[in-house]
Amino acid sequence: MDLPVWQALYERLKDDNFTIIAVAMDSRDGDPLPWVEAASPTYPVLVDRDHLLADLYNMTNVPQAVWIDEQGAIVRPAENAGAYEAFRARDPKTGAPSESAMATLADAKRTYVEAIADWVAKGPESEHVFDRQQALDHLSRPNDDTALAHAHFRLAQHLIRLGRGEEADAHLGEAKRLHPDSWNILRQAIPPNDMGLAVDPDFIARVQSLGRKHYYPPVDMKGMPSGDPPTAD
């Protein structure tokens, strides 16, 4: 959970014309509250029950981030916000995380956070800021199916709020079918387990079937992990 990481970064940089906006992709009333109370963030934490941000910025997972400059221009389009899929390297017998994968995870987050600090200090001169062409090259664009999937998701959330869950399920199903790459849509439809995590056999099977595909795609940034995802070994 990133909120404490962002809080430390915000404390460090908030007087440098910088803010963090953390948007919770939580559709169920009250779900984000305990997490927010534990982290006591002083930057804005917003709630996006309808996943409007995923629709606007073509996001498919959390955490994803966009860097926006003082003029409102995107200088890094939606990307994995420094997360690393260390969870895929758990020992299959004991469930223990791999030490090397956990070290890579910590390094990745630190590198990503320092890149943000470099941008805040240097602005467009930071090596982590994309120029126009680089930003366009890194942009992922929605297609007709993803746009329709987000429409189904929004209608479903409204129907759920009206107490019409059964009718909503059909629209959630359509959203999942039309946008199979969206972990946001898939996981929102999974009831939380004992640990509050949206993990069910279908989700686990989907992650396992990723093979060499990434759950958190590598960030195109110096010092960030690249190459194949880690495996249990």
């Binding site: 910088f18 963090i20 906006i21 779900d31 959390v62 994803q64 966009v66 400059d69 003082e70 943000i116």
Partner: peptide, 9 residues
């Protein structure tokens, strides 16, 4: 400057 990030419970 805005670092706009998503998360979820």
């Amino acid at each position: 400057k805005v670092f706009l990030t998503t998360w979820a419970s």
